[in-house]
Design a protein around this nucleic acid. Structure first.
Length: 580
RNA sequence: GGUCCCGUGGUGUAGCCUGGCCAAACACGCGGCCCUGUCAAGGCCGAGAACGCCGGUUCGAAUCCGGUCGGGACCGCCA
C-alpha cells in the first residue's frame, strides 16, 4: 500500500472503526508508560492516537518529529478514555507493525508548543515553522482564498492572463528591483511593482475582463503588513464604471467572508471621502471598529493667547483634537506614553485639557473646544498642533493607541469601507503638483473646468478598499480620452520626452481603439491576514523576509562569483565606510 | 535616514531598573531508570548557558555606559 493513498491520521473517525490501516506521519507527542506507549501521530490533516504495546526495542527511537509508518486497526477508545479535545478523539489505532522511516534530532524549537518561537528561529528554520499546525492552517487558508477568488472571477467571465516578471521599469512610484541584462550591457529589467501598464494593454487587446493572482515587487522598507514581494489579485475590466468595480469586489469579499468565516458582510460598503478620512481619523485607512473622531480646532483657537496653537495656525498648520471618553482617569504616566507615541511619529508633542495648557485658554475657547470635540465632564481632550500632514499622522496614531489602551476596539467586527472619491493631485515635498495615484487616473469630468483655480479639489475616479485599519486594495477608472490625458500631463508639467519614454507604449496603444476601462488590485496577503486572524504578513507567506529584507533560511541576498558579475557587465562599488 | 523595544542552556521565560547573595532560577525538551490507558501522562536521577559580540566604568557587571551585529514595531518611504 502506498502512503500517498493511505488514510489521513487527522481524518479518522468512529465510522472507521474496525478498519485495518496504514498511517504515515510525524510523532507529535509521546506518552511512554513502559509496557504501553501512546503516540500522537500527526499529518497535515491532524493527529490521531496510536497505541503501541511490546515495543521495547523501538521506544527509545520514537523521537518527537520522527517520521513513522504504523500498521494497525482503528478501534473505539475504551469507555471514558475518549479525548473530546481531538477531532479523532473517539478512536485510536492499535499498532501491530511500526516502522521508523526517518529519525528526527531534537528540533530547534517545539513544533507542538502553542507558544510562538522566536522570530529569528522561525525564519531560519521556516520548514519546521510551517510544520506547526497553526502555520499549516495558514497555508491551507491561503490556498482556499486563492481558489475562491479564481472560481468567483471565472464565474464572471474574467480570464487569468500571466504577465512577465522580467519587465520594464514602470511608472509607479516605488523603487524597482533590477535584473541586469547579460545580452544588453548596461541595461536592466525591472521586476513588476504591479502589472499596471500590461493590464491596461490587455484591455486594448480586447480581453475585456482580466484578472491575475500576480506577484509584485517593491524595493521599499518593510512593515508588519508589507513585504518586498507580495501578491495581488490584479483586476482590469472594460466598459465599466465605478459601481461595477465596487459591486464586483464587494461580492468577492462577501463570498470570502461567507465561505471562510461563515460571516455575512453587509453590502454595499459605506464610502468615505479621503479628505474626510484624514480629517476625522487621521489616516487614509481608518479603523471604524471604534468611534473616537478627531476634530479641527482651527476656528476656535485662531486668536488664542496660547502661543503654540496661534503660531501653528498662523503658519498654515492645523490644531486637531480627540476626546478620550472618561480620559480624566488617565494616569500621568499614560499621558507621557502617549506623548512618546506622538514624538515617535515625528510630532512636537501633545497637549491635554484639562491640563497645563488650560490657563492660556479663555472660557469661550474652552467651551468651543468642548463643543467641537463633544467632550463631556469626565473626558480628556488630547490636542496636536503641527503642519497638516504631520498633525494627521500623529492624531491618527494617537487615536489607534487610545483605542487599544482603553479597549475600545470591538473585536469580531468587520468594518469595510471604500475610500472614495479621492483627489487627482497632491502636493509633493516641494509644494508642486503631483499625481496622487498614477497619471492615468480618470478625473471627474465635471471638476475639470476649475482645475486651474483649484487643482487640489479635482476629484478622481479612484478608490481604496479598507477594512479594520488595513488598506486591502486600490484602483481607479483610467483615462481613455487622449485630450483629457494630454491635459493631465500638461497640468503635471511633465516634459514630452519623459511622457514618451515612460508611457509611450500605452499612449500609442490608446490610438488604436481603447475601451473605457478601470480596475483594482486587492492585496491577497492582507486578505489572508484578516481571515487568518493575524496582524503579521509573515504569517501568511510561506517564505518571508526579515525587516532588513534577508531570507534567514536561504541566506539571501548573497554575494556571487565575480565571473557571474563579469558576464552581467556589473561592477560592485562597496558603500563608503564612515570614517572613524 | 530616524525613533523605540528585544538578544540569558536546544526552546520559552525569570533575573537587569535598585551592580556583589548568579559559573545564573523555572518550565519544556534532551539522556538514564521505573511504570499497561495516557493525552501538556507521572515519578526519580542526570547533562546542558560564563548571559549576541567588542570596548569602557568599577575592587567587582548578565545587571551601568558606548559601539557593533541580529530580530521586531513605528515615522519617513510605499499610486
Amino acid at each position: 500500500m502506498s502512503g500517498f493513498t493511505a488514510p489521513h491520521c487527522g481524518a479518522l473517525r468512529a465510522s472507521d472503526e474496525g478498519h485495518e490501516v496504514d498511517l504515515y506521519g510525524w510523532v507529535a507527542r509521546r506518552r511512554d508508560h513502559g509496557a504501553v506507549i501512546f503516540i500522537d501521530l500527526r499529518d497535515r490533516w491532524g493527529a490521531v492516537q496510536v497505541v503501541i504495546r511490546d515495543a521495547e526495542t523501538l521506544s527509545a527511537r520514537l523521537r518527537l518529529e520522527s517520521v513513522v509508518r504504523v500498521r494497525g486497526k482503528v478501534q473505539r477508545r475504551p469507555n471514558g478514555s475518549e479525548n473530546p479535545r481531538m477531532a479523532t478523539g473517539e478512536v485510536e489505532v492499535v499498532s501491530d507493525d511500526l516502522e521508523i522511516l526517518s529519525e528526527s534530532q531534537p528540533t530547534p524549537f517545539p513544533i507542538e508548543d502553542p507558544e510562538e518561537p522566536d522570530e529569528k528561529n522561525r525564519l531560519e528554520y521556516r520548514y519546521l515553522d510551517l510544520r506547526r499546525p497553526h502555520m499549516t492552517k495558514m497555508l491551507e487558508l491561503r490556498n482556499k482564498v486563492n481558489r475562491i477568488i479564481r472560481d468567483y472571477m471565472e464565474e464572471r467571465e474574467f480570464i487569468e492572463v500571466e504577465t512577465p516578471i522580467l519587465t520594464r521599469s514602470s511608472p509607479s512610484g516605488a523603487r524597482d528591483f533590477l535584473v541586469p541584462s547579460r545580452l544588453h550591457p548596461g541595461s536592466f529589467y525591472a521586476l513588476p511593482q504591479a502589472p499596471q501598464m500590461l493590464k491596461q494593454l490587455l484591455m486594448v487587446s480586447g480581453v475585456q475582463r482580466y484578472y491575475q493572482i500576480a506577484r509584485c515587487f517593491r524595493d521599499e522598507n518593510l512593515r508588519a503588513d508589507r513585504q518586498p514581494e507580495f501578491t495581488q489579485l490584479d483586476v482590469e475590466m472594460s466598459f465599466c464604471d465605478e459601481e461595477d468595480v465596487f459591486t464586483l469586489i464587494e461580492g468577492l469579499f462577501a463570498q470570502l467572508w461567507q465561505k471562510i468565516l461563515g460571516i455575512t458582510l453587509p453590502v454595499p460598503f459605506p464610502r468615505l471621502d479621503i479628505k474626510e478620512s484624514y480629517l476625522r481619523y487621521g489616516t487614509d485607512k481608518p479603523d471604524l471598529r471604534y468611534e473616537l473622531e478627531i476634530s479641527d480646532l482651527g476656528d476656535a483657537l485662531r486668536e488664542t493667547r496660547a502661543e503654540i496653537f496661534r503660531k501653528v495656525l498662523a503658519g498654515g498648520g492645523v490644531v486637531r483634537a480627540l476626546s478620550v471618553p472618561n480620559g480624566k482617569e488617565l494616569a500621568r504616566r499614560e499621558l507621557d506614553e502617549l506623548v512618546t507615541v506622538a514624538r515617535g511619529a515625528g510630532g512636537q508633542g501633545l497637549a491635554w485639557l484639562p491640563g497645563p495648557m488650560e490657563k492660556f485658554l479663555s472660557d469661550g475657547e474652552m467651551s468651543d473646544v468642548r463643543r467641537l470635540t463633544g467632550a463631556g465632564e469626565n473626558d480628556l481632550v488630547l490636542i496636536v498642533a503641527d503642519r497638516r500632514r504631520k498633525a494627521e499622522t500623529v492624531m491618527g496614531l494617537i487615536r489607534q493607541e487610545v483605542a487599544r489602551r482603553r479597549k475600545l476596539v470591538r473585536e469580531g467586527e468587520w468594518k469595510f469601507l471604500w475610500i472614495n472619491p479621492t483627489y487627482l493631485f497632491e502636493e509633493d515635498d516641494q509644494g508642486k503638483l503631483t499625481y496622487a495615484h498614477h497619471p492615468f487616473t480618470r478625473p471627474f469630468a465635471e471638476d475639470m473646468p476649475f482645475v486651474e483655480e483649484r487643482p487640489y479639489d479635482v476629484r478622481a475616479h479612484a478608490y481604496d478598499i479598507v477594512c479594520n485599519g488595513y488598506e486591502l486594495g486600490g484602483g481607479s477608472l483610467r483615462i481613455y480620452d487622449p485630450a483629457m490625458q494630454e491635459r493631465v500631463f500638461q497640468l503635471l508639467g511633465m516634459p514630452l520626452e519623459t511622457i514618451r519614454a515612460r508611457f509611450g507604449t500605452l499612449l500609442e496603444a490608446f490610438t488604436y481603439g481603447v475601451p473605457p476601462h478601470g480596475g483594482i488590485a486587492p492585496g491577497i496577503d492582507r486578505i489572508v491576514m484578516m481571515l487568518g486572524g493575524t496582524d503579521n504578513i509573515r504569517d501568511v507567506i510561506a517564505f518571508p523576509k526579515t525587516q532588513s529584507m534577508s531570507d534567514l533560511m536561504l541566506g539571501a541576498p548573497s554575494e556571487v562569483d565575480s565571473e557571474q558579475l563579469d558576464e552581467l557587465h556589473v561592477k560592485v562599488v562597496p558603500p563608503q565606510k564612515a570614517s572613524s
